[in-house]
Simulated scan of single mutants.
Amino acid sequence: MQLIGILRWLVELGRMDVCAEVLMMSLYNAMPRVGHFHAVLHLFGYLETHPSREIVMDSAYMALTDIPQSEWHEFYPWAKEVLPPDMPEALGRAVKIVMFVDASHASILVTRQSRTGVLIHLNHALIVWYSKKQNAVETSSFGSEFAALKTGVELVEGLVYKLQIMGVPIDGHCDTLVVNPSYVKWNVH
């Protein structure tokens, strides 16, 4: 259990390349077996052989040209963005938010639960990485993808609120990319 705790801190500190694996090992934290211990040692072996992974903060805009654009104003004419009442004036160069969302349907073989994965970029800088098992067991891949998208939207809403409170200007809406475009064909505002 201590080794899992160390791995979880490593993920928090920026080693997102082992995020999904640490999540899978955390599932067996209550009753670990010998095989789980060997898998954790294998993770530490990977980290030892790949010590120089780093997060690059790049302020250049991410050029995404293949995203289908949709306008939902005609369907929701009353909808408007709720801004914080004590929001300071936005100063500086605007940032573009891009979110990548995916779900692996029924990937946890013991419980048949799905996993959600979310990556959120500000310009080219990856600032949020999220991998967690879903609370409910979905009967279809559509349900697991939709649950993953809901989680991603909640993360983006929290990030947008934090940026607005700090006075960071936001360039338009959040471009959302999913693996299967039949699930989502719009941009999250």
Rank of each mutant, 00 (worst) to 15 (best):
M1C: 07
M1F: 06
M1S: 12
I4G: 01
G5L: 09
G5E: 09
G5D: 12
I6Y: 01
I6M: 08
L7N: 01
L7K: 02
V11Q: 00
V11Y: 00
E12N: 13
M16A: 08
D17N: 14
D17G: 08
C19L: 10
E21R: 12
M24I: 03
A30W: 09
R33H: 12
G35Q: 12
H36M: 00
L43G: 02
F44T: 11
Y46R: 10
L47F: 01
S52A: 04
R53D: 06
I55Y: 00
I55A: 05
Y61T: 07
M62S: 04
T65H: 14
Q69V: 10
S70C: 02
Y76L: 12
Y76A: 08
W78N: 15
A79Y: 14
P88H: 04
P88S: 07
P88K: 02
A90K: 09
L91F: 10
R93Q: 13
R93V: 08
I97P: 01
M99E: 10
F100C: 10
F100V: 00
F100A: 05
A103V: 07
S104M: 00
H105I: 01
H105V: 01
I108R: 06
Q113N: 15
S114L: 07
G117F: 11
L119M: 15
N123Q: 12
A125G: 09
A125P: 01
V128D: 00
W129I: 00
Q134P: 08
A136Y: 06
V137T: 09
F142W: 08
F142R: 03
F146E: 10
K150L: 13
K150I: 11
G152Y: 13
G152S: 13
V153D: 03
V153G: 08
V153L: 07
E154A: 10
V156M: 01
G158V: 04
V160T: 12
K162N: 12
Q164W: 14
V168N: 04
V168G: 05
D171G: 00
G172Q: 05
C174S: 03
L177F: 07
L177C: 13
L177A: 08
V178K: 03
P181W: 04
N187V: 14
N187M: 14
